[in-house]
């Protein structure tokens, strides 16, 4: 794990771009934070921050309980008709 290199303000600004990347990824199937980070080649800390904001604003939600390694899977919230 690399210590935090970037300020939170800069990481959080990136959410506005990265949420589209995360949305694309989650369209196929639910992912954990490490899976998202690996797919997007970004630090897990940053992936969690973006995912958390997406959850806060109703774009993603967790699926069930944490797996054996302690990670939740996240999926896109289905839009209501």
């Amino acid at each position: 794990m690399t210590p935090l290199q970037r300020d939170l303000t800069e990481i959080m600004r990136d959410e506005m771009i990265m949420r589209d990347e995360i949305t694309k990824l989650l369209t196929s199937e639910p992912h954990t934070v490490p899976e998202i980070a690996e797919a997007l080649k970004v630090p897990t800390t940053e992936a969690l921050l973006w995912l958390t904001a997406m959850r806060r604003y109703g774009l993603v939600e967790e699926v069930g309980r944490a797996d054996a390694n302690g990670y939740f899977k996240y999926t896109l919230v289905k839009e209501e008709n």
């Binding site: 794990m1 954990t32 934070v33 490490p34 980070a37 897990t44 800390t45 992936a47 969690l48 995912l51 958390t52 959850r55 806060r56 939600e61 967790e62 944490a66 390694n69 302690g70 990670y71 939740f72």
Partner: peptide, 16 residues
């Protein structure tokens, strides 16, 4: 809370 559970900020893992 900000997360859906008590998660560690580095990777979203439930700490044990």
């Amino acid at each position: 809370r900000p997360f859906n559970s008590v998660l560690r900020p580095s990777d979203g893992k439930e700490p044990d």
